[in-house]
Amino acid sequence: MIHQVRRCLWLFFIHMFISAFTFGGGYVVIPMIRKYFVERNKLFQEGDLLEMAAIAQSAPGAIAVNLSALTGYRVAGRTGAMVSCVGSVVPPLLILSLVSMGYQAVAGNRILRGILGGMETGVAALIVDLLIDMWRALLREKYLLLPILAVGTFLGSYILHLPVLLLLGLSGFLCAAKARGRRGGEVC
Rank of each mutant, 00 (worst) to 15 (best):
M1H: 14
M1V: 14
M1I: 14
I2Y: 09
I2Q: 12
R7H: 07
C8I: 07
L11W: 02
F12W: 10
F12H: 05
I14Y: 00
H15I: 02
H15R: 01
M16V: 06
I18S: 00
F21T: 13
T22F: 01
T22K: 00
G24A: 08
G25T: 05
G25F: 03
G26Y: 04
Y27N: 04
V28H: 01
V29G: 01
V29P: 03
I30G: 00
P31H: 03
R34L: 13
Y36H: 13
E39T: 11
E39D: 13
R40P: 05
N41V: 10
L43D: 06
F44N: 07
F44V: 08
F44A: 08
Q45R: 06
E46K: 03
G47Y: 02
L49F: 08
E51R: 07
A53T: 12
A54S: 14
A56E: 02
Q57W: 02
A59K: 01
P60V: 06
G61F: 08
N66A: 08
N66F: 06
L67R: 00
S68Q: 06
A69S: 10
L70G: 03
L70W: 04
T71K: 01
T71C: 15
R74G: 11
R74D: 14
A76F: 05
A76E: 12
R78I: 15
T79H: 12
T79L: 15
G80M: 11
A81W: 09
V83D: 03
V83S: 01
S84C: 11
S84H: 07
V86W: 08
P92V: 12
L94Y: 12
I95E: 12
L96S: 14
L96H: 09
S97E: 04
S97W: 13
S97G: 15
L98W: 13
V99R: 02
V99Q: 03
G102I: 08
A105Q: 15
V106S: 12
V106D: 13
A107L: 10
G108L: 09
N109A: 11
R113V: 14
R113A: 15
I115F: 15
M119F: 13
M119D: 04
M119K: 04
E120P: 00
A124Q: 01
V128A: 05
D129W: 01
L131G: 03
I132K: 00
I132M: 00
D133C: 02
D133G: 05
M134P: 00
W135A: 07
R136K: 13
A137Y: 10
A137C: 03
L138N: 02
Y143E: 13
L145D: 07
L146E: 04
P147E: 07
P147K: 02
I148M: 15
V151G: 04
G152A: 10
T153Q: 07
G156K: 03
Y158L: 10
I159C: 10
P163E: 12
P163V: 02
L166W: 13
G169E: 06
G169L: 10
L170Y: 02
G172E: 08
F173G: 06
C175H: 02
C175Q: 00
C175D: 02
A176T: 12
R180C: 11
R180L: 14
R182N: 15
R183P: 10
R183I: 12
G185R: 01
V187F: 14
C188W: 12
C188N: 11
